[in-house]
Design a protein around this nucleic acid. Sequence first.
DNA 1: ATGGTTTTTACTGCGTC
DNA 2: GACGCGGTAAAAACCAT
Length: 313
Amino acid sequence: MWEKSEDGVFRTSCPVCGNRLIGDAEKGELVCPTCGYVTFAPADEGPEWKAMDLEEKNKRVRVGSPTTLALHDLGLTTEISATMRDSHGKYLDPAMRASVEKMKKWQSRIRTISSEERGLSNVLSRISELCESLNLPHNVAETAAQIYRTSARMKVAKSKSILGMTAATVYLACRKCGVSRTLKEVARGAGLEKGSVARYFRLVLKDVEKTYVPPPSVEKYISKLVNMAKIDPRVEHLALMLSRKTNDSKISSGKAPAGLAAAYVYLSSVMLGEHLPQREVAEFAEVTEVTVRNRCREILDNYVIRQEVSGSD
DNA sequence: ATGGTTTTTACTGCGTC
DNA sequence: GACGCGGTAAAAACCAT
């Protein structure tokens, strides 16, 4: 799945739109140039040190798998071996053996002993499941896990619906990571009503994440829309340009970004002779045709769009 | 709870293929 | 006639207060 070219750049395809992801192996970040999907390069890919020379290369060996916030114990455990030998391979004497047996028993009891821990591991696995079914990158799952941890620590999650909390944390994680998934999509993935997820989301936003996290920009929505609907990239280019030239509070304030994005895509498709039906654009943006029309009207009322005929564009 | 704003629902009329 | 498009009124949803 992962290819690494000589220049140290990872390449793979975007799970959202299928386009090539490009990124920097050292930063460990992969970005989709079209829809803005961000993920991380696999952390297990070799030693984490960059060897300066051969000697150093031999010295630096990485041990263990990477820690992850998505497991309740961060993926860090120590097993007491069942072989009953010491570190030199010799068998243990009976007294030692008995005490090791005791320790093993206690270790297994302690591992997920408290109800909080058990609840945490339950929710974290649900978060992972939800992220998986929504095709979200790992960093979103990690962020969601992080959010849930702090909310659990602050007792915000106390006596709340587990499903509602997972959906809310995943949605917040999407926004923090700049991955454009709507509340609707996350709610649908969790099999919940949009309204109830919104309630939990506000709760988490108020009590856990104190600073306001802006929703994805109109441009993100445009890219997503274009990729989902498999529209000509030229349309995307023009739509992005239009949105940048006309990003005015007059037409954008208070409006659903998805509707605005749909309008830009629709206008661009008309201008380029593609002429996608409003119906289709609206459907992919999950808004109504009426909304698309209203946004279009507002854009056209406030701006004069003239087509410039030039060789490059 | 409430009021202002935005979105949706539902319906109509127009032009074109 | 079916389809895409533009518009409107009223209901519903949303959001800040």
